[in-house]
Computed example of a mutant assay.
Amino acid sequence: MPTIDRIDAFADELTAIRRDLHAHPEIGFEEVRTSGIVAEKLAQWGVEVHRGLGGTGVVGVLRGKGSGTRRIGLRADMDALPMEENTNLKWRSTIPGRFHGCGHDGHTTILLGTARYLAETRNFDGTVHFIFQPAEEGLGGARAMIKDGLFEKFPCDEIYGLHNAPDLNHGELAVLPGPAMAGADFFDITINGYGAHGAMPERSKDPVVIAMTLGQALQTIVSRNVSPNEPAVLSITQIHAGSAYNVIPGEAKLAGTVRAFSDDVRALIRERMRSVCAGVAAAFAVEISVDIRDIFSVLVNQEEHCKVVADVARTVVEPSKVITRSKPKMGSEDFADMLHAVPGAYFWLGHDGSVPVHNPGYTLDDKILPIGASVFSRIVETRLPATS
């Protein structure tokens, strides 16, 4: 099954763009250079450019042939991660503590390739909105764009997004109707105890011991309060306390994340977390403050649009490589908020390499760039067919 010849013809240029973005990563809401390159490329290809939505977001508007009024949104995220890269690539990150360890440089490049092809051919009847989003990695970039009037200024009848997937084989594409990625909360818990000498614990209200007790108690929420039929995760990922061997500190902090596919389950977990913290605080005669923040909505794909993705994908990759019964992922994605506003679908595109995303040794396979751009382009040409 073929990728689009015209896209294949400039695949090397896409690779060069992707590697340049990779070498100059920018984290959420700091994508000044990246958004500048995106805007420059879009304008060069004759796409109408709008900047500043959600801070560093960019939207390109392209109208096809005819007078069709339907509008499709295509979205890519642009931000990198605040972590070090541990690869020997010639185009590795040049910025300490910044790394495109999730492949958003690839997503941005795929959407740029789509924009170039559609701008050169305009073989569709309607309007395409190319949405380049900042700050996907837990900072609320999608919500920021929506708050700035994304869908009022650039209405969409349907919307699509993708993510690279090193856990799939090269050329495999997976799409799942219904809840496909978990909603997520982040939490911070602060235990205000009473410090003392490490040799005199009876004079303290030891927040370290309380933190260990609380950590164990919180794990019972999923195992004993959430139905076994409802997937859920509560992970404590940070513990901070103390600064010396012989000092019992006065404060300890716990932080982490909650994941679930049901908003009712998420509400239950929040309620139980607050209750458990209050109970432990009463038991140890200390104050415990709890801050739980809704970061990602549950990502829900529409069945109609999943079928669109699957049917189109079978014209680009081998039909046997299109997976429509994939399992939901406990990871989260803020494209979910766009899907709450506009119906559509989010899918995964496999590539060579077994190192997972968010690992310092992760690498993106540039061979997926023309595949992703071809799928996006054919979605537009299929859903907005040009009239003869």
Rank of each mutant, 00 (worst) to 15 (best):
S326V: 12
L162V: 08
F130E: 02
H100D: 03
G52M: 04
L21K: 14
R293L: 00
V38D: 10
L168V: 02
E137T: 04
E318F: 11
F154D: 00
H107Q: 13
W45Y: 05
I323H: 04
D352T: 15
R51G: 07
F130K: 07
I221G: 07
D337Q: 14
R19I: 00
A144Q: 02
N246S: 15
S326W: 07
R70H: 06
D12N: 06
L364C: 13
L74S: 08
G331V: 15
D157G: 05
V276M: 06
L168Q: 10
A217T: 02
P2W: 11
I131N: 10
A119M: 09
P319Y: 02
M1K: 11
T190N: 11
P82W: 01
S93P: 00
S227L: 07
E13Y: 10
E137R: 12
Q302F: 05
V47D: 00
N359Y: 10
A217Q: 05
Y160N: 09
D105A: 12
T108W: 09
A341V: 01
K153V: 00
T121M: 13
G279C: 03
V286T: 06
F151P: 00
K367F: 01
T257C: 00
P343V: 15
F132V: 03
I27F: 07
L112S: 08
I37L: 13
A196S: 13
S275A: 14
G55H: 09
D125P: 08
L74E: 08
T94F: 08
Y194T: 14
A182I: 14
D5H: 14
V342M: 02
A119W: 10
S374T: 08
L89K: 07
I27R: 08
D352M: 13
V342F: 02
V286S: 06
V208A: 08
C156E: 01
H351I: 11
A241F: 06
E136T: 12
V312L: 11
L21H: 12
L254C: 02
D365C: 14
R19C: 05
G149S: 04
W45L: 03
A336H: 04
T382L: 09
V175W: 05
D105S: 12
R18S: 12
L299W: 05
L81M: 02
L42T: 01
T237Q: 07
Q216N: 11
L150G: 00
V209R: 06
V357P: 05
T87Y: 10
D157T: 03
G331M: 12
H340P: 05
G178Q: 03
